[in-house]
Design a protein around this nucleic acid. Sequence first.
DNA 1: CAAGTATGTGTACATCTGTACACAAAAACT
DNA 2: AGTTTTTGTGTACAGATGTACACATACTTG
Lengths: 203, 203
Amino acid sequence: MTTTDSESLRTAADERRGRNGGSRKDPGRRERIARAAISVVAERGIEKVTHRAVAAAAGVPLGSTTYHFATLDDLLAMALRQAAQDNVAELREWAEGMDSGVDLPALLTDLVLRYLGPERKRTVVEHELYVAALHRPALRSASTEWDAALRDLFTAYTDEVSGKMLAAVFCGLLWQGVVREPLPDRDEIEMIFRRAVDGNCSD
Amino acid sequence: MTTTDSESLRTAADERRGRNGGSRKDPGRRERIARAAISVVAERGIEKVTHRAVAAAAGVPLGSTTYHFATLDDLLAMALRQAAQDNVAELREWAEGMDSGVDLPALLTDLVLRYLGPERKRTVVEHELYVAALHRPALRSASTEWDAALRDLFTAYTDEVSGKMLAAVFCGLLWQGVVREPLPDRDEIEMIFRRAVDGNCSD
DNA sequence: CAAGTATGTGTACATCTGTACACAAAAACT
DNA sequence: AGTTTTTGTGTACAGATGTACACATACTTG
């Protein structure tokens, strides 16, 4: 290894221009910077998103971030909007692999556990986006669109009211789970979804 | 009125020491500063909580905040913990006025609408606390305690699983509602709770 | 090839921030 | 009374931050 440790961050550029040190014209640099911002949000929180921190995470000099994004708010807005879009895209993809007539509670449980486990970073970013939007009108649309996508997804497999209800349960479980230290038990979550879907008929 | 406009902020001290201008020994100053911090969080977001902003909001000089709180994290921690406690206290109080056999969905709807309307500030602070806790272990207990209180409240009126499920619905509706521009419709929320409580028996 | 433009980079600077600290004044104590 | 301790305040300072901008290099167009 001759490179220091920014190796992993150089790959995209290398592959396009052949590890040429001072390469110009790096397409996708904007997006790479935005993604670096996302990872800073995920790992250190939204308040740590500074030009310098993002530049370091992206492996680019400070001037590069200020060149591609006039203001820090622009950078944040693009990063969070992109995060929300990725999130929704993944949700839709998940939904496609779903037949009608499947065990909905079990699938929802899988989804929750995935968002709390392997995809935890994504979840954290989504939640940071949510509260950031509370005081930044520019980000509000990204948040509400995520909610809408969630509702549409669930209403497609049940009905209007049940879909909204399941979306709320899903959202609530995510929120409660993301701060809990040991991941919640699988059975616990599944039981909750089952109760939400089947109801209290036996009472 | 001889005082400028810090009048409302002086009341506590006045009542104890008789409107003595340069009064020392102002008990409750610590708490007042913490509450000022809460209001800064509610109105401008957690990232705007600085010694200077809090001092201005509390009507005290800069040195006062650094005197009462060694570090900014201490101030934030106390403020948010207090906010969470207030929140839980209000929840319990609400629960006491509840008979068994009441219309649970209607009451839950009232609660959601109250948190989204008159008590919106409180809700915003609670949510900022939640994400702040994601990257500050010191705050995590306050968040989880809020969740626990919520669950206990709901399980007391139903059963274990249904309580958890309702807590999740409640939490999810709050999250989705706090970013939505026009407040959600009362009927919509009530319908959701009704479906959650009664289930889909007729399907 | 020459000129012009888009892209990239290093540095500088005004501003804001946390915090330390010297001082002042009241209260508690002897 | 005097002394010590607690409480309060103004100021100073080092560091971080957003952003501007002069310069450098590559690409594009003629």
